[in-house]
C-alpha cells in the first residue's frame, strides 16, 4: 500500500508520451484515417529533438526543430496517402519501418555510432512545482514534480478539446470523418483537413518523442518500444474523445506502473508481469464497450 502514491506518480510519467501521441492520433482518427504511423512519428520526434537540442544547445529550440522534422515526415505520409490514394495502413507501416531505419542511419552518419548516443550537453529535464505545492498531502506527491512535458500535455489536451469542439476547424475535422461529402458539397476539401490532422499528429508525436529522449539525455535506437501502438489503443479505449484519452492513457500508465512495482513484490514469472498492462487494458476495453453497449442498446 505504501507504494500507491509513487505508483500514481509514475503512472503520470508513463502516460504522458502516450497521451501526446494519442492526441495527434485522435485528429487523424476523427478525420477518418487510421494512423498506424504514430510509432514511427514518435521515434522520428525522439531522434530529431535530441540531436537538434544537442546542436542548438537549447532543449526548447531542439524540441521545436524536432517537431518540425516529425511534421515533415507526417506530411510525406499524408501526401502519399491522400494524393496517391495509398492504403493508409501500408503507408503507416512504411513510416514505422522508415523511421526505425533512418534514425540509425542518420545517427551513424552524424555520430559514427549506431547504438546509444549520449549527449553530454543536455541537462536533465527540470521538474516543475514549488516546495509549497509539493507539500499538499497526496495530491502534491502525485501531481507535483513532473517535467514540463507532463503539464504541457494537459494544456494541450485542453487545447485539443477546444480545437475539436470550439473552433470551426475542429468541427470540419470531425465532419470530414463523419460525412466528407457534406464538406465537399459546401466547397471545402476533406483531404485538406485530413492533411492538417496528419500534421497535428506529427506535432504531438514530435513532442511526445522529444520527451522520451530528452528525459534521458540520450538516444537509444527503437526507444519508443511500441508506445505508438499503445497510443492507438488509447484512442479507441478513450472512445475517441479528448477526456477519454486522458482516462485511457492513465489506465495504461497505471497498469504499467503497477507491473513495474509488482515485479519487486510478486513472485511470478516476469513475462506474466510484463503482460499485465496489455491484459488490464484489454479488460478495460471490454468493460467500456459493455458499458457503451448497455447505454446505447436498441437503436431504431
Amino acid at each position: 500500500m505504501q507504494f500507491t502514491i509513487p505508483m500514481l506518480h509514475s503512472a503520470i510519467t508513463i502516460m504522458t508520451p502516450l497521451l501526446l501521441a494519442s492526441m495527434g492520433g485522435l485528429f487523424t482518427e476523427l478525420s477518418g484515417m487510421l494512423n498506424i504511423a504514430l510509432e514511427g512519428l514518435l521515434l522520428m520526434g525522439a531522434f530529431c529533438s535530441i540531436i537538434f537540442s544537442y546542436y542548438t544547445a537549447s532543449m526548447i529550440l531542439g524540441t521545436l526543430l524536432g517537431i518540425v522534422c516529425t511534421m515533415i515526415l507526417s506530411a510525406i505520409l499524408a501526401s502519399v496517402t491522400l494524393n496517391l490514394k495509398a492504403n493508409v495502413f501500408i503507408t503507416g507501416l512504411a513510416v514505422n519501418l522508415f523511421a526505425s531505419g533512418m534514425t540509425v542511419v542518420l545517427s551513424f552518419a552524424l555520430f559514427a555510432n549506431k547504438g546509444v548516443v549520449v549527449f553530454d550537453n543536455i541537462p536533465p529535464l527540470p521538474l516543475l512545482g514549488t516546495p509549497e505545492l509539493a507539500k499538499i498531502p497526496i495530491l502534491g506527491d502525485i501531481f507535483i514534480g513532473h517535467s514540463a512535458f507532463v503539464y504541457l500535455s494537459w494544456l494541450l489536451l485542453a487545447l485539443c478539446y477546444f480545437v475539436l469542439y470550439r473552433t470551426p476547424f475542429g468541427f470540419r475535422i470531425r465532419a470530414t470523418g463523419l460525412h466528407p461529402e457534406a464538406l465537399s458539397s459546401l466547397g471545402m476539401r476533406p483531404n485538406r483537413y485530413r492533411f492538417a490532422s496528419f500534421l497535428i499528429s506529427g506535432f504531438t508525436c514530435g513532442l511526445g518523442g522529444a520527451l522520451l529522449t530528452l528525459n534521458l539525455g540520450a538516444f537509444v535506437p527503437n526507444i519508443t518500444a511500441g508506445k505508438g501502438w499503445i497510443a492507438l489503443v488509447v484512442i479507441f479505449l478513450g472512445n475517441k474523445k479528448p477526456i477519454g484519452l486522458l482516462i485511457a492513457a492513465f489506465i495504461f500508465g497505471l497498469a504499467d506502473a503497477f507491473s513495474n512495482y509488482a515485479q519487486g513484490a510478486l513472485n511470478i514469472p516476469s513475462d506474466f508481469i510484463l503482460a499485465i498492462p496489455y491484459i488490464f487494458t484489454l479488460l478495460a476495453m471490454i468493460g467500456s464497450s459493455i458499458y457503451a453497449n448497455k447505454k446505447g442498446a436498441i437503436e431504431s
Binding site: F171, R172, A175, L178, H179, L183, L186, M188
Partner: peptide, 13 residues
C-alpha cells in the same frame, strides 16, 4: 453530419 446540430450543419464553412 448527423452528430452535429442543425445550426452546426447550417453554418459549416
Amino acid at each position: 453530419v448527423e452528430d452535429f446540430t442543425v445550426a452546426q450543419n447550417v453554418v459549416m464553412g
